[in-house]
């Protein structure tokens, strides 16, 4: 069973995360936690100081965190984005595509199921910041799109 699934080579920072609304006053904090109602764009001026963003999924049906992660990656954030809370294997592939590179679910995931979920999709239809060439790019001979 996996308690922290991570796709980064740097050492995990385990400094405590502060909330988005506290973050502005505590710019020495290295980690911040985004709740579903928070605006990820409030963090954009501070991205250089942040080593870890936790995005909380209190219930898996609340998909605001997917947009939050993409917004951070689209702004060039390269630190860790960790999905925490109600996260399960069947969300892994989509979360990876949105820029999450660490997962710390409330209920640990089965390793084999997680591996299978992440290896399942050879191709993708959409362009995101994950570096994968979408099918339309492959069709038109532009694998770097």
């Amino acid at each position: 069973m996996v308690e922290l699934l991570r796709f980064r080579t740097d050492e995990p920072s385990e400094s405590p995360a502060v909330t988005v609304d506290c973050f502005g006053e505590q710019t020495n904090a290295g980690a911040v936690r985004i709740e579903p109602g928070d605006d990820a764009r409030e963090l954009l001026p501070h991205l250089a100081h942040i080593t870890r963003v936790e995005v909380n999924f209190p219930v898996f049906g609340d998909g605001r965190g997917y947009s939050a992660a993409r917004i951070l990656r689209e702004a060039g954030y390269e630190g860790e984005i960790r999905a925490v809370g109600d996260v399960a294997v069947d969300q892994l592939a989509a979360l990876r595509r949105c820029g999450f590179d660490a997962f710390q679910p409330d209920v640990p995931m089965n390793d084999a199921d997680a591996d299978a979920a992440l290896a399942r999709w050879d191709n993708v239809y959409q362009k995101t910041t994950d570096g994968r060439a979408p099918i339309w790019a492959l069709r038109h001979g532009n694998a770097n799109a």
Binding site: D62, G63, Q91, A93, A94, C98, Y125, Q126
Partner: peptide, 13 residues
């Protein structure tokens, strides 16, 4: 159709 199929950001609207 292709864009919306398995769209990673919009699977929990």
């Amino acid at each position: 159709r292709q864009w919306s199929s398995f769209h990673p950001e919009f699977c929990a609207l």
